[in-house]
Amino acid sequence: MAQVTLNSVRKVYPNGVEAVTSSSFKIEDGEFVVLVGPSGCGKSTLLRMIAGLEDITEGTLEIGDRVVNNVDPADRDIAMVFQNYALYPHMTVRKNIAYGLKNRKTPADEIERKVAEAAKMLNLEEYLERKPSQLSGGQRQRVAMGRAIVRDPALFLFDEPLSNLDAKLRNQMRIEIKALQRRLGVTSIYVTHDQVEAMTMADRIIVLNGGRIEQIGTPSEIYHNPASVFVASFMGAPPMNLIDATITGGQVTLADGVAMGALQTSAQGAVKLGIRPEDVQLVSEGGVSINVELIEELGAHRLLHGKLGGQPFTIHVLKDIPVDPGAHQISVDPAAICLFDAASGMRL
């Protein structure tokens, strides 16, 4: 078990691309941290530096109490699960799982015991003599997990491990991985571009954008208090409504002159209002008017898409509230509105 500490870690690839700008954070022992962000934002680079598969250009990385910048991946006491599983195709499941132990000169009977234990935990017992090519995607994923857990490492690293599975299996594996991590209590860093995975699995989320950390926080903090327009729009499905507005003396006016009422804020001038679709209520009178153009039926709830002050706006309503397209009145709890600087996109 170990905590992971990054001090001003930075990565510049030999071709001059700065994939990760100077980043610092600490991951506590036993914590499940998800690195999330759009493709190309530097998630894998960060993870691979922690794994030791990429050199660290600047800064120090500590796993446990030692600085591991120059420690070989094999000696960092980590295990990694890859996107394409990276199973050895010519070895049986048993040999795949045992390979890391064998290389570490673990006694044969102990290997035997540990492999059996891992196989049991992952429901792989009947597949131990098969080759990876004879397994389904989900089973391969489990073998990759097995290979990680038999080693009993201080740190698990996952690089988009579920992105090759279909949606149903992904949901199932998500829960399995999370449960397994809980049970083993091993510190884990999990990379994904899928905000649902991030929200559901993480103890804490690190949101990356363009090689920079946008925000670090619990799923609830990230969801309810996004630090920037980027985080607000990236996390949550449907995303937060972001509309241009002007504040003068606490009075909010939308871009085309519609008055939204008063807010307790010292902010002045051009801002972006961030409003989660579920923080909006339909009211019969006295609200702001909106024209609902399209209704998305999602079973347990509906999404109403329309325009507010000429800008796209989405409202989340529960299934037993009947709504038709057309003009409606809405009200928003002022406490649920996030204000962002119009120019920088940062939270005010």
Partner: peptide
């Protein structure tokens, strides 16, 4: 040969000679 396979073997503690004999030759 996929890069990931090489990296998985590295993390599994296979040095250059082991990787050659255990992974590359059979493949």
């Amino acid at each position: 040969v996929p890069e990931e396979l090489v990296e998985a073997a590295r993390i599994d503690g296979a040095g250059p000679v082991k990787f050659f004999i255990d992974i590359l030759v059979p493949l």
